[in-house]
Write a protein that binds this DNA or RNA. Structure first.
Lengths: 229, 229
DNA sequence: CCAGATATTGTAAAACTAACACTTATTGTT
DNA sequence: AACAATAAGTGTTAGTTTTACAATATCTGG
């Protein structure tokens, strides 16, 4: 087999935007870099793709290495390849995003040593980011805004059992606008993808709300159809 | 500056899906390869990215080299990076699509010598394609189906002056279903992006239809809003 | 039992969608 | 000049979806 030799040094990497939802705010997982270039800067978690893994596999591996999390569906959304984007050579980056449940069972395991620390940061209070990561982030946020309007993916950010008000909050925070409570509930329930658990919220000092669970089986039927908010 | 050396030979390419519309059919531009691998196979036009060009620039260059066409908006839609996708090494491909007016002023100039020939081929009669190009094509077609439902991009496939029936044909062919004539016209005109040219079709042996032009200024206002068919 | 906090519920007007068929204009033919 | 052929052009109605809007119910803690 004749190998095609690249005419110049080049390679490709994955960057991940991990969205989380906590205390009524949309968060993104950032790491503080411990190595040059951009030492001490905040950045999206990412890494070079290895020889024997596909892009999707690479994204899963990187997510796992950086967070300990497995079995999360990540979606590729864009590839960033401006000439000067990486100071150490021609490296293009394939960007993925995922939406995670924070807290609960899946706490974040320590991050590999290439980062000083990792934190969930409110998307409204982002620090200056390394490389072109601000651009990547902005585009990722736009992507989930569009997606959440058409597919009921907001569940992925919530604990397994959640109230309709919590769900509405997710929509409001991502879309950046208030929604009408009655209309939201009517519409959401009409999709028939929420299972009423006949169970109430606990530990609140006011009327407890009904808990719901996302019904994957029914979701399959909805998938493909378009919904909107 | 410390260069990051890739740990293995790898590089990246662009593949373009060029959609055209002719004789009531959706077409795609394919080349017949003149070199190994996949010599004599049909393939999407594509090439390696050069050192000093961004991905977008590379896509424009490749489009120009292969078709002589310039100033067409191409949109990146996905990056294909399975391990075995290219028999000559680890080459991932960033895929773009564009919608072109066929015929008229912009005839295709001869293709560079790396292809035996290039042809516009009906998307319903595709030959077996090289590499993973069938997969790339399928995904590109899905993409424009989704996009045409939400943004009035069908114009890009038509000559500058067109009739409503021609426009409806584009929608029907891409969406793969018949649309109601009255409802289509009502809706399309309600977007206010078509300028009535007070001019009639010529050379037809039946009642001549009114010609319209796409109004870019008004389109700007619509953009962002969602429409649907 | 009262105050505070949030959950839960319905209705009416407006906008949009979907279904449906006949008349008009033009050309070419007899 | 009539007419056959062909596609252009046009409205209405019923059904569905969206929007706007506010009072009552439930629970907790003091």
């Amino acid at each position: 087999m004749i190998e095609v030799l690249p005419q110049f040094n080049s390679t490709f990497s994955i960057d991940c935007i991990l969205f989380g939802f906590d205390e009524g705010e949309l968060k993104v997982l950032l790491i503080e870099r411990n190595e040059e270039p951009f030492k001490d800067w905040w950045a999206l978690p990412g890494n070079l793709v290895s020889e024997n893994e596909s892009l999707d596999q690479s994204a899963s591996r990187i997510l796992h290495e950086l967070t300990g999390i497995e079995n999360v569906y990540m979606e590729q959304f864009y590839t960033f390849g401006d000439v000067g984007r990486h100071p150490q050579g021609r490296i293009i980056s394939v960007a993925y995003y995922a939406m995670l449940r924070l807290g609960g069972d899946k706490a974040l395991k320590p991050i590999s040593n290439y980062a000083k620390q990792a934190h969930w940061i409110n998307v409204k209070e982002l620090p200056k980011l390394a490389f072109d990561h601000q651009k990547i982030f902005d585009q990722g946020l736009e992507k989930i805004k569009r997606r959440i309007k058409h597919q009921p993916i907001a569940f992925e950010l919530l604990p397994e059992k959640f109230t309709l008000t919590q769900l509405q909050n997710v929509y409001e925070v991502i879309l950046g606008k208030k929604l009408d409570k009655r209309n939201f509930r009517k519409k959401m329930l009409s999709f028939n993808v929420l299972k009423d658990l006949n169970e109430k919220q606990k530990g609140v000092s006011f009327r407890a709300a009904t808990l719901y669970r996302f019904d994957k089986r029914k979701y399959g039927k909805l998938f493909g159809k378009e919904i909107s908010f």
